[in-house]
Amino acid sequence: MGELGSGLFFFGLSLLVMWESLRVGLGTLREPGSGFISFCLGVILSILSLLLILRGWGLQASREHFPRRVILALVFVVLYSLVLETIGFVLATFLLVGLLFRLGEPRPWWALLGMSLSVTFLAYLVFGIVLHVYFPRGFLGF
């Protein structure tokens, strides 16, 4: 993606900001409206992103490669936020911690189990008991 891709992304965003600002209302210089400053910012952003596009125009785009570990970690944490209410804090946290530890480096299953249990227990102790955070219990009841 590099300069050209990010420039195009921000240019598109600036157009959206300007469009929405116009919709909200710019007001006048004497009485600026809700969209006044965001419109100005949209204009500045469009100029800055055009500069980025111009700089990236002649450059050869490199092939994008996102590390597998990063993608998997993102998938795991997004899944965690989606299933937390349904399966409950303890089970969801235990599974997430186990998967993340496995992602870091290969470890024997008993080490993974022990580490996941310890982190889940510690998290529950610190946040649930000491700081009184109410965690979702889920269908299993814990």
Partner: peptide
């Protein structure tokens, strides 16, 4: 690799604890 997991968990639980919202 251990530290990273702890930071991720802290972020997840910390974010949840603010408004109890997933």
């Amino acid at each position: 690799s251990i530290l990273a997991v702890l930071i991720v968990m802290f972020c997840q639980i910390g974010a949840y604890s603010v408004n109890h919202s997933t």
